[in-house]
Design a protein around this nucleic acid. Structure first.
Lengths: 207, 207
DNA sequence: GCAGAGCGGAACGATCCGTTCCACTGCTAG
DNA sequence: CTAGCAGTGGAACGGATCGTTCCGCTCTGC
């Protein structure tokens, strides 16, 4: 800002705006565009110069989240211990607060070819990590459970972002301990359709 | 409907409308009033005949949820085993899907004297049940964790209501197992303020 | 029968939000 | 040095949504 020329300032705004958008839409998926501008400390024009529409902004954000998810998985793959790799992966995803982006934004804009490809890749990676760690888990656990665990962690939220991270760590620890041991689980695991319903054409839903 | 006179029909509508409101606002706290009317199969007039405003409807709904919460606690109190009582209580609350009502509606309308009293009573009861079961829990567990566990269970959601209940049972089992055993938990437990922030005057929140 | 309680749903006004537009700024190319 | 324009702030607009009101109808309970 102080030392910045016009172009430098503009380049900087790219990140600032994306970060602001992430924060705002993480807190409230239905937040207005103006809220993003306000948080970024820029005018609305600055947003519309970069993204043709709000929808494009959300798509970009979602894709970005998916990339981070994939990056976490790739990183964790290198970790030697099977359970350690899985745990590090999940902690990384929860810590980066990536799940809300990829899931809670679903349905707010039509899917996308690139997005679908990334989602598939993300699923494959996550499943691989899960399978590696499965020997350490209770027998009924399935990869689909991971999605739900992430969803549950994302539900932990307090006004302060840093504290939210801390609390999520606490409950993720509980969840992972629960994933490892305990008596038999009631009811069947979630199916793929049940996990992805947000993307589907929104049929008549009971709730 | 078939055998109903006008007054009988009206009395019936009382329950139908409240049930519809519960379902609708459980699914989406920001749902329009018209959605409630539609689900109840009545006109909008039928709602406004009973409740002066949407806000009153939400308040009633919230109070109703709190009553159910209290009823679950009182019921569970009679159960002999300490852990069994606690578990039955939590399962009951999750099963009745009462948590979303009392928490996710928070902030959408100004508090209320009766509501506050009920909330206090609910907290005391829940805490008592928690303390009874605490010997069976990992040492770091505190009553405040219960609120978060409920919040996490409420995050489990699929389009079908019955299936949602089933899945919540699955993950509640995991959570309870995690609550009982495992290694040390990272980070401090949530504070009372952190749990009730939704009710507060909505200061400047980071997220 | 008939007065009116109860109701359906159109209509209204307020609010909100995505997008556009325009005036302005100050860098940067030449 | 300066002309031009990329980048910007924010007011303005038009459409959508939603809470609430209102009017005309129905059908019951007396």
């Amino acid at each position: 800002m102080t030392t910045a020329g016009r172009t430098r300032q503009a380049a900087r705004n790219n990140e600032v705006i994306l970060a602001a958008a992430r924060e705002v839409f993480l807190a409230d998926q239905r937040a207005p565009v103006s809220a993003v501008a306000e948080r970024a400390g820029v005018g609305i024009s600055a947003l519309y110069r970069r993204y043709p529409s709000k929808e494009d902004m959300l798509r970009t954000l979602c894709g970005d989240g998916l990339q981070r998810f994939i990056a976490e998985a790739v990183r964790a793959m290198e970790i030697p211990g099977d359970w350690a790799a899985f745990e590090s992966f999940v902690r990384g995803v929860v810590d980066a607060d990536v799940h809300s982006l990829t899931v809670h934004l679903a349905g707010t804009f039509p899917p996308d070819e690139q997005l679908a490809a990334d989602a598939t890749r993300a699923n494959i990676l996550a499943e691989a990590l899960f399978e590696r760690a499965r020997p350490d888990m209770r027998p009924e656990a399935v990869p689909a459970d991971l999605t739900m665990l992430l969803e549950m962690c994302a539900a932990v939220r307090v006004p302060d972002a840093e504290r939210t991270r801390e609390l999520r760590g606490r409950y993720l620890a509980m969840l992972l301990d629960g994933l490892r041991r305990g008596g038999p689980l009631p009811g069947p695991a979630p199916t793929a359709e049940e996990l992805n319903w947000r993307w589907h054409p929104a049929g008549t839903e009971t709730r």
